[in-house]
Design a protein around this nucleic acid. Structure first.
Length: 246
DNA sequence: GTTCTAGAAC
DNA sequence: GTTCTAGAAC
């Protein structure tokens, strides 16, 4: 049996990653160099993983540290990071479109890596900033995505490490430095309010998102109606389903 | 990564 | 008595 911790690598090695090879609960899309899947345990309303595909002649790509090592010895890693960034940017646009179609407004979408991932094979998280999904259950889950904890490394930051003459800035990504961040005290990433436990934090996050939705949904709806008055006849896109309902 | 569950916290 | 966390097992 394939270990669940290594399943991403088996996906990355598929010569034809599509609905013929992967179930619809896993597969979202692919390009020549990337594969995008639904996170099996989404921690937000929208949560995808973008993987670099591995061709037979390519070397291993376990995680971000592997990529940084490759970067130190040649140009290949920069190309990998670029195709991931391109695909993530495209996916973010698709997600935002779906947010508007379903919720009437678009909220932040975070794109980045876990400093110390649990699953083997490099994977870029593309996750909406609500953090309100049922699979977000533990302090570790929360801190691994909270922008305040510093365990989640934004793609934009990684790309600065790949700039010329940035070698001195590249971190070691040592587990002993990052894993303690997963144990940080619970506090809301928006307002810093402390939470006494996970159920309390989850309730707060849901309240925060509901309030945002009420504010943004209303103002965007009014703006859209105003636009419709001046430019009528715009087709209403139905929007491809991009996240499973649970 | 998740599941299970013992014992801490309430 | 019930809720919640966190470490072992997978």
């Amino acid at each position: 049996m394939t270990s669940s911790l290594k399943v991403l690598r088996t996906y990355a090695k598929l010569s034809d990653p599509s609905l013929t090879a992967l179930p619809p609960t896993v597969y979202f899309s692919h390009t020549k160099h990337t594969l995008t899947i639904f996170d099996a345990y989404p921690k937000a309303l929208f949560h995808f993983l973008v993987l670099p595909r591995l061709s037979a002649d390519e070397s291993d790509l376990t995680d971000l540290r592997t990529l940084l090592r490759q970067h130190a010895s040649g140009p290949g890693a920069g190309a990998t990071l670029r195709v991931l960034a391109d695909e993530a940017a495209r996916l973010r646009g698709v997600v935002e479109e779906e947010m508007r179609a379903r919720y009437g407004f678009a909220w932040d979408v975070w794109v980045g890596f876990h400093a110390v991932p649990s699953m083997e094979h490099l994977h870029l998280h593309v996750i909406s900033s609500d953090l309100t999904a049922p699979a977000l259950k533990t302090k570790r889950h929360y801190n691994s995505f909270s922008p305040r904890a510093g365990f989640f490394v934004p793609l934009a930051e990684v790309r600065t490490w790949f700039d010329d003459a940035a070698a001195a800035k590249v971190p070691r990504l040592a587990p002993e430095e990052y894993e303690p961040r997963l144990k940080y005290a619970l506090e809301c990433f928006r307002c810093e309010q402390p939470a006494k436990n996970m159920p309390a934090l989850k309730k707060h996050l849901q309240d925060e998102f509901d309030a945002l939705r009420k504010r943004e949904g209303k103002s965007k709806k009014h703006r859209r109606e105003a636009e419709d008055e001046s430019a009528s006849g715009t087709a209403k896109g139905k929007g491809k389903k991009v996240a499973r309902l649970s």
